[in-house]
């Protein structure tokens, strides 16, 4: 192991995932220009929500709710089983979408929620938030926190049991989920039943081994990640340990007193090591966490390769954990 190249040999992709990563590698890399150009785009690469729920016994409702004090309103989409009866109070998933805190839209993750609705009788609240660089930290974090507080406060009218709200998200949404858990603890806000972190983006420093292994490789490269953190935190704090913990939850020095965490990540991606470390630090202070690192999984493997065996097995693990935190 004498050269730098040899030191950062990446973990190979799962055979069912590799062809998908390869096909996506042909797409142009993310740039500041492409981020800003995407603002006008509509439509989800993962299917239109209305089309996805068509014919299913699900009611889809778009709403606008108040944002943080002094900030714009928030758009949310609520997915409810159509046969919800008055007075029924279901467990809920409050979902925060991914996209590096710089791109993406809640509509992209409708499928991820439907998969869970196919296994659990739940209400889903899918939130939109302000993106960087136009709206850097703390805009997005405060938006998603406000949405969580609103969901909890309005649980009764939504058919939600306020004690059974799980906050979830993938990638940037996973990072935001971890941040909402920290904020709710520190601000004595509503108590969530659990935090479901899918390949969460939590460490801005880029210092782990896995952050070195996926330079120019995979569905969320080191380069994309560096750009995203720069958009969120600005040049000065982008990779600094002085970044605030609600922006980059790995910066939190105290991980005690948090709700039960579920942390899932692919073994073949940038965020692997920071996510493993976050779980380890929760256990080290006696907290509850569950960790699943799927062999050969790229970033967001469940969305890019939904039929791969690791994606199906990952869904089973999520399903199991949700049953346990809602028991």
């Amino acid at each position: 192991m004498s050269t730098t190249e040899q030191r950062f040999v990446p973990v190979p992709f799962d055979p069912e995932v590799a062809p998908i990563v390869e096909a996506m590698g042909a797409a142009p890399a993310m740039s500041l220009e492409s981020i800003l150009a995407s603002r006008g785009e509509t439509g989800s690469p993962f299917g239109d929500p209305a089309e996805l729920v068509k014919g299913l016994p699900i009611t889809l409702e778009d709403r606008v709710i108040p944002g943080p004090a002094g900030a714009p309103d928030l758009e949310i989409t609520i997915l409810t089983p159509s046969d919800l009866t008055p007075g029924e109070a279901l467990p809920a998933l409050y979902n925060i979408h991914g996209g590096g805190m710089v791109v993406g839209h809640r509509s992209w993750e409708t499928g991820r929620l439907l998969d869970l609705m196919s296994r659990h009788r739940v209400v889903c609240v899918n939130v939109e938030y302000r993106l960087a660089p136009e709206d850097p930290y703390p805009a997005g974090a405060e938006d998603v926190y406000a949405g969580f507080v609103w969901t909890h406060a309005n649980a009764a009218s939504l058919g939600i049991d306020p004690e059974k709200i799980v906050v979830m998200g993938g990638s940037a949404g996973g990072g935001f989920t971890a941040a909402v858990a920290l904020m709710a603890r520190d601000r004595r806000g509503p108590v969530m039943a659990g935090q479901l972190l899918l390949c969460p983006m939590i460490d801005n420093t880029g210092t782990t081994v896995s952050a070195q292994q996926y330079r120019g490789l995979g569905t969320w490269t080191r380069e994309a990640n560096d750009l995203a953190w720069t958009c969120v935190l600005g040049e000065e704090l982008a990779f600094s340990t002085d970044a605030l913990e609600y922006a980059a939850p790995s910066r939190a020095t105290d991980l005690s007193g948090l709700p039960a965490a579920f942390i899932e990540v692919g073994a073949a991606e940038t965020f692997r090591d920071e996510d493993v470390e976050y779980a380890s630090r929760i256990w080290a202070v006696g907290g509850r966490a569950e960790l699943h690192v799927w062999d050969g999984g790229c970033h967001g493997f469940d969305m890019y390769a939904p039929e791969a065996r690791i994606s199906r097995a990952a869904l089973d693990a999520r399903d199991s954990w949700l049953r346990r935190v809602w028991a």
Binding site: P81, L114, H120, P306, S311, S320
Partner: peptide, 26 residues
Amino acid sequence: LVPAEEGAVALGGDAAVGTGAGAGAD
């Protein structure tokens, strides 16, 4: 694992719904 919970939404046998991870899974 275990059957879907009572009252969960049946996606049908077609894997075209959702991310596909749940639909049609073994």
